[in-house]
Every structure is written in C-alpha cells, then in structure tokens.
Computed example of a mutant assay.
Amino acid sequence: MKKHLVLLMLALAATQAASAAQIVTVSRFQFGKQWAFAKEEIQLLCRADRSLYALNISTLVQYPLNEKATRQMESGQVKAQPISVILLDDPANPGHKMSLDPFVARAERLCDAK
C-alpha cells in the first residue's frame, strides 16, 4: 500500500513538473541590454491557446505579449494591464520602447515545449 502511495505521489510530481514548462522566470541579468522591463525579474507564460503573457512576480499582474493576449485583455476575458505600463524606453532609439521580440520568442518556445 505504501509503495502505491509513493508511486502515486511521484506521478503527481512528474505531472506538475511537466505542466510547469509553460512558465519560465527571466531576469535582467540573462538578457542584458535587451532587457525591456521596469522590473528586475518577470515570468513569461504560454497558455494552451498560445496567448503569451509577462507576469510581474511581486504583484501577479499579467501583461499581454502577443495580439491574442491583447485581444483577451481588451475583451475582458483576462484581467491584465497593457505591456506599455512596464516597458522601458529604448536608449538607442529615443521616443521608442524596448523591443519585446526576445521575450516573445522565449515565450513561444514554452508553447512549443508542451
């Protein structure tokens, strides 16, 4: 009986680990000069429908990273704030914000890893 319980617990842990592949924590340290956010660390997540979000770890506020996620926010399907709220200005391109491309690409890899 105890062996079955242990096996069940291991199976549950493995399932949770597999589902955790949809979220990754990234930091300013990892991206260097490409870092686009006013926060030092964020989580990137891919939902089953391939909508991509950045998540502020300290406040749990979501920010859409792609058009699908933006539509969900605008329609009220998902509680989120516009990504512009946490985007940094691009010092190399005055009047523009930093590019989200590296973060969208990283979040898309989460979708593909499922």
Score class of each variant (00 low, 15 high):
M1S: 15
M1A: 15
K2F: 07
H4F: 13
V6W: 08
L7C: 07
L7G: 04
L12W: 10
L12C: 10
A13L: 12
A13I: 02
A14D: 09
A14G: 14
T15D: 14
Q16E: 14
Q16K: 12
A17L: 10
A17Y: 14
A17V: 08
A18L: 09
A18I: 03
A21R: 14
Q22S: 13
Q22G: 06
T25I: 15
T25A: 11
T25C: 06
V26L: 06
Q30C: 02
Q30M: 10
F31P: 01
G32N: 07
A36R: 02
F37C: 02
E40D: 15
E40L: 08
E40C: 08
E41V: 14
Q43F: 05
Q43T: 09
L44H: 02
L44P: 04
L45R: 09
L45K: 09
L45C: 08
C46L: 05
C46M: 03
A48W: 04
A48V: 15
D49H: 03
R50E: 14
R50P: 02
R50S: 15
S51F: 03
L52H: 03
Y53C: 01
Y53R: 04
A54W: 01
I57Y: 06
T59C: 04
L60W: 08
L60P: 00
V61N: 12
Y63G: 02
Y63F: 12
P64E: 02
P64T: 07
P64G: 04
L65V: 02
L65G: 00
L65C: 00
E67H: 13
E67G: 11
E67L: 11
A69W: 06
T70H: 06
T70F: 04
R71V: 15
R71M: 12
Q72K: 11
Q72M: 09
Q72A: 11
M73Q: 10
M73P: 03
G76L: 03
G76E: 05
Q77V: 11
K79W: 12
K79E: 13
K79Q: 14
A80P: 00
A80E: 03
Q81T: 12
I83F: 01
S84I: 03
S84L: 08
V85A: 13
I86H: 05
L88F: 09
L88Y: 10
P91R: 09
P91L: 02
P91A: 01
P94Y: 07
G95T: 02
H96R: 13
K97I: 00
K97R: 12
S99D: 11
L100E: 00
L100D: 00
L100P: 00
P102N: 05
V104K: 05
R106Q: 15
A107C: 03
A107L: 05
E108A: 07
E108K: 11
E108S: 09
R109M: 13
C111Y: 04
C111N: 03
A113C: 04
K114M: 09
